[in-house]
Amino acid sequence: MVDLIFYAAATLSVLAALGVVLARNPVHSVLWLLASFVGIATTYLLSGFQFLAAIQVLVYGGAIMVLFLFVVMLLNLGDPDAEHDAPVMQGGLTPRLGIGIGCIVAALTLLTVANANLAQLPEGVVLPIGGLDPLKQMALAMFTQWTLAFEGASVLLLATAVGVLVLAKRERASVAVSPPQTLTAAKEEAA
C-alpha cells in the first residue's frame, strides 16, 4: 500500500514536471511546479524524511512558489497570448536540441543507475520512530560539524537581501529613466 502511494506520488511529480515544461502560460507552469513539489514531498515522507517533507512544503510551496507567482503577476505575464515560445509544438532547432540533451542526460544517468551495483539493502529494516532525519540530531550536527556552512548560509541570505535590493529597487527619481534613449541625459546629470 505504502509502495503504491510512493509510485503514485512519483508519477504525479513526473507528470507535473512535464506540465511545467510544456505549459504555455507561466501561471500554469507555477501551479504545475507546485504539484510536482507536493509529489516530491510525499516521496520524502514515505522514504522516512519527515522534516524534509515539511520544509519542502513550507519553503517551496509556501515561499518560493509564491515568489514566482508574485513576479509573474507583477510583470503581468499571465496572459497566454503574450507567450511566444510555445515549446515543442513550434518546431525549430532549439526545442529539439533541448529535448535531445534532456534525453541524453536521462539515458546516461538511467544507464548508470541500472548498472549502479548498489549494495543490496538488508531485508526487514523498518524506519526508526524519529524518521531518518531526527530533528535533534540534525540540529546538533548543524550547530557543530556544519557550523561553518550554517553561518555561511546566514551571510548568504544577508548578501542576497542586499543584492536583490540593488537589482530590484525602483530607480530613484533623478536616475529613473526607463527608456534607454534618455540614458545619456541621466549620465550627464549624475556626473
Binding site: W146, A149, V155, L156, A159, T160, V162, L167, L183
Partner: peptide, 26 residues
C-alpha cells in the same frame, strides 16, 4: 561537499548581483 557548496553559493550570488550592478545598462 556541504561546506564547499555553501562556499560556492557565497561566492556566486554576490557576483551575479555585481555583474548586473550597472542595472541601468542593458
Amino acid at each position: 561537499l556541504i561546506t564547499f557548496f555553501i562556499g560556492l553559493e557565497l561566492l556566486s550570488i554576490p557576483l551575479y548581483c555585481l555583474a548586473a550592478f550597472r542595472r541601468v545598462r542593458n
